[in-house]
C-alpha cells in the first residue's frame, strides 16, 4: 500500500497567541512548535495500515525550514520518507495554494490513500483535505473516527450533528482524521535515531510548479474582543449563591 500523510507544524495548544501591533500576524518568538494534533491521528492511522497491509508511508509538509522538525517527528514515529515543500513564496499561502502544492507532489507518487488532519489548530480552516481531494480528483472522507480497509475500498465512520454515518469509498481517496480515530504513538529513541537517516526531499515552488498567490488573505489579525470584567456571585452558602446566580442569569443576562 502506498500511503501519504500530510502534516503541518503549528503552535502548541498551550501557546499564548499574541497579535503583532500592526495586525500583520502573530508574534512567533515564544512559541513552542508541534505537529498539528489532528495530523498525528492521520500519521498513526497511516502507520497502522502499513503494519497490517505492508507498503510505505510518505509524509509531506508545506512549511518554513522549522517544519522539517515535524517531518522528522513523523519519520521517528515510523514513516519511511518525507517531502518538505519549503519556499518563502508559500508564506501567507491559503488552503487552496497548500492543497495544490500537496497535490502536485502526490501526483508524482503512487498513492492509495492520503491522510490529513481534519483541521489545523492554527488557522482552523479545515479546508486542505477537501481541496486536495478535488485537486487529485478523488473522493474525500472528512472527520473520520474509524477506518476499515478492504482491498480496493475503505469503510469509515463519520460523525455529523446528531448522527454517525457509515460510508464506503473506492480508493484512492483523502481521509481527514478526527480525534477518536486512534491513539498516536510516541516516537521511540531508536525511532528518533533511525529518522535522522531517512530520506527527505526538499522542494521549492519552482520545482513543483504551482501558483503561490493566496485566494483568501488574512488582511488583518486582531485580538479577541475584550470581555467586560465578571462578577463574583455573593451569598452565605451554596443555596444563596445559586439563588442569586439564577436571578442574575434571568434578570441581568437574560439567558434563562
Amino acid at each position: 500500500m502506498n500511503i501519504i500523510a500530510c502534516v503541518k507544524q503549528v503552535p502548541d495548544t498551550e501557546a499564548q497567541i499574541k497579535v503583532k501591533a500592526d495586525g500583520s500576524g502573530i508574534e512567533e518568538g515564544q512559541i513552542k512548535w508541534v505537529m498539528n494534533p489532528y495530523d498525528e491521528f492521520g500519521v498513526e492511522e497511516a502507520l497502522k495500515l502499513k503494519e497490517k497491509n505492508g507498503g510505505d508511508v510518505t509524509v509531506i509538509s508545506v512549511g518554513p525550514a522549522r517544519a522539517m522538525e515535524t517531518i522528522r517527528t513523523a519519520l521517528a514515529m515510523g514513516a519511511d520518507k518525507g517531502v518538505h515543500i519549503c519556499d518563502p513564496a508559500f508564506d501567507g499561502a491559503d488552503a487552496y495554494v497548500v492543497a495544490n502544492a500537496l497535490a502536485a507532489v502526490i501526483k508524482t507518487l503512487p498513492h492509495d490513500i492520503i491522510f490529513c488532519g481534519q483541521r489545523a489548530i492554527d488557522d482552523d480552516a479545515g479546508q486542505v483535505g477537501a481541496m486536495l481531494a478535488e485537486a487529485l480528483g478523488v473522493p474525500q472522507l472528512t472527520l473520520v473516527t474509524k477506518l476499515e480497509f478492504a482491498g480496493s475500498s475503505v469503510k469509515v465512520i463519520r460523525p455529523i450533528e446528531g448522527a454517525q454515518l457509515s460510508i464506503e469509498t473506492a480508493l484512492p481517496c483523502v481521509v481527514t482524521a478526527q480525534k477518536g480515530l486512534n491513539e498516536p504513538r510516541y516516537a521511540s529513541l531508536p525511532g528518533i535515531m533511525k529518522a535522522k537517516k531517512k530520506p527527505v526531499d526538499v522542494k521549492d515552488a519552482a520545482a513543483i510548479g504551482v501558483a503561490t498567490d493566496a485566494k483568501a488573505k488574512v488582511a488583518k489579525t486582531i485580538p479577541p474582543p475584550a470581555r467586560p470584567p465578571g462578577k463574583i456571585v455573593c451569598g452565605d452558602d451554596p443555596a444563596q449563591k445559586a439563588a442569586e446566580l439564577g436571578r442574575l442569569l434571568r434578570e441581568e443576562a437574560k439567558v434563562i
Binding site: Y96, E134, I160
Partner: peptide
Amino acid sequence: SVQGKDLSARVAAKLATGLATD
C-alpha cells in the same frame, strides 16, 4: 456545520476560489 464545511471546501476548490471558514 459538518456538512457545510465538507461541501464548501470542495466547491471552493472546484471554482478555484478562496474560502473563509467558520
